[in-house]
Structures are given as structure tokens and as C-alpha cells.
């Protein structure tokens, strides 16, 4: 299983998650980034189940309307949920409260279970909104959007560089792995494996640094003076305003649901 995972993840080269065209693609990138950031802030600071669940519902609706492949999207979240499962197993026993049942003298409490479930709901909601609003644009669009949002220039440049060279380096890595496989190398739990992987990693570093020197020379040769130009003009249109206002209203509703008196 781990091998399959490795392959699917190293072949990412900065493209958006696979999806069919939808109305979400028409919304301005900056609006999408800001909206998902605010959403995360509101949902994570929610104290009650109702706003968190509403957030999760909204996240599902967004995933549905962004026409992401549902199966693949869920598979991405499952990896995180396996980690959460561990927490769900631990938290009920370590939180004091009304007991549900007891094992080996340890008592599980309702409060602990609810706490763990609340964390799961929040974490899933945030990730699904990120997938549907942000991951449906390519990483370079995201970089440009961040630059327009006044994120430090160098950081954006670093991101654009990284996205570009991830693909190149992962190809280099795959080439070297294939060469090892051709020589009948199999990953095992022993020192030989670790040494070989260490050599692989060291060689990857050396080749990459040499490549970086070539890139930098080639860029200087073409008059690179230390910055990219962001040519795309991003304009806020009517769709963006409508979506932004609707989303903000929804967030205000979530904040309102967090006021304590409502549930007492």
C-alpha cells in the first residue's frame, strides 16, 4: 500500500486537483483564498456542535458544487481520519466526566468522546473547504493570488520555484529508484536499505544543487534581476462579490450560533 501512496504523491507537479469545470472556477482566486481562511478561523474556534456541523455541511456542498471527484477527495481525508481515530480512542479515557463504560478500571467519559468528535468534524470541514475552494486552482495561481494579497514577495517566489521544481526532482528521484530496482533492490527493514536510501538521498541533493546552479545561471543569462512579474490582472467581478457576501453572511451565522445563551 505504501508503494502506491508514494507513487501517487510524487507525481504531483503543482496542478489543481482533477475536477470538471464548475462555477467555483469563475470566482476570483483571492476571494477563494480569503474565504477559506476565514472559514477555518470561524469553524476551528467554534465551541458547539451545531456551528461545526453546519460548517461540515457547507464544506460538503462546496465539494459537490466544485465537481471534485468525491471518492478521491474522501480518500485524501481518510488518511487524516485514521490519526483522528487514535485520538477518539484515547480522549474519552483521559477526560473526566460522566462515564459511558469502563475497561480495566479505566472509565470512558461522554465529554471526552464528544470532544474528540468535535475535533474530527472541525478538521474535516476545514480540509474539505480547502480542497473545494483552493485546491481547485493550480499552485501557481495560488501563488499569484497570495502575491496580490500582499504575502512577502520572496515567500511567493519560493513557492513558485518549488512548485516548478517538484516535478523535475521527483522525476530525478524516480529515475534513480528505477535504476535501483533494476539492480534488484527491495526496501526492507535493515541497515542495507537505510544506507542505500541515504546514498540515494545524498545523490539527489547533489544533483539538485548542481541543477539549481544551472537554473540560476540560465536565468541570469536571460536577464533575471531577482523577481518574477505578475502579469495577470485579477479583477473583482459581480460573481465574486455575490459569493463573497453570501459566504460572509454564512460565517456570521456560524459566529452567531456560537453565542452561549442560545443553547442554555
Amino acid at each position: 500500500m505504501s508503494q502506491g501512496l508514494e507513487h501517487s504523491l510524487t507525481s504531483w507537479s503543482g496542478q489543481a486537483l482533477k475536477h470538471q469545470a464548475s462555477w467555483i472556477d469563475d470566482i476570483d482566486a483571492r476571494v477563494r483564498v480569503v474565504c477559506s481562511g476565514l472559514f477555518a478561523l470561524v469553524v476551528v474556534s467554534s465551541q458547539h456542535f451545531v456551528p461545526a456541523l453546519l460548517g461540515l455541511l457547507c464544506a460538503f456542498l462546496l465539494v459537490k458544487s466544485s465537481k471534485l471527484n468525491i471518492k478521491r477527495t474522501l480518500r485524501r481525508v481518510v488518511a487524516m481520519d485514521l490519526f483522528m481515530l487514535m485520538l477518539i480512542c484515547v480522549l474519552p479515557f483521559t477526560t473526566p466526566g460522566d462515564p459511558i463504560f469502563s475497561v480495566f478500571g479505566l472509565t470512558a467519559s461522554w465529554q471526552g468522546l464528544l470532544h474528540a468528535l468535535l475535533i474530527t468534524v472541525k478538521a474535516n470541514a476545514v480540509l474539505l473547504v480547502l480542497f473545494s475552494l483552493v485546491a481547485t486552482m493550480s499552485a501557481s495561481t495560488l501563488g499569484h493570488a497570495l502575491a496580490h494579497l500582499k504575502v512577502p514577495d520572496k515567500l511567493v517566489h519560493l513557492m513558485l520555484f518549488m512548485v516548478r521544481y517538484l516535478d523535475v526532482i521527483s522525476q530525478e528521484y524516480k529515475k534513480m529508484r528505477r535504476a535501483m530496482q533494476a539492480r534488484a533492490f527491495v526496501l526492507r527493514t535493515n541497515r542495507h536499505t537505510w544506507k542505500s536510501i541515504g546514498y540515494l538521498f545524498g545523490m539527489l541533493l547533489i544533483r539538485s544543487v548542481e541543477r539549481a546552479e544551472r537554473i540560476s545561471d540560465a536565468m541570469k543569462c536571460r536577464g533575471f534581476c531577482g523577481r518574477y512579474y505578475l502579469n495577470d490582472e485579477m479583477k473583482i467581478g459581480r460573481v465574486d462579490v455575490v459569493f463573497g457576501v453570501a459566504f460572509l453572511c454564512f460565517l456570521v451565522l456560524l459566529i452567531g450560533l456560537n453565542i452561549d445563551d442560545l443553547f442554555k
Binding site: 521527483s170 528521484y173 541533493l205 539538485s208 539549481a212 540560476s216
Partner: peptide, 15 residues
């Protein structure tokens, strides 16, 4: 000037 180097190294660690 360091951008290409840092970008490439960061990608190596990503991989």
C-alpha cells in the same frame, strides 16, 4: 540569488 537553491532543496525535502 539563493532562490533557486532554496526552492530546489525544499522540493527535495518535499519528495
Amino acid at each position: 540569488d539563493h532562490l533557486p537553491l532554496v526552492g530546489v532543496l525544499a522540493s527535495v525535502f518535499f519528495i
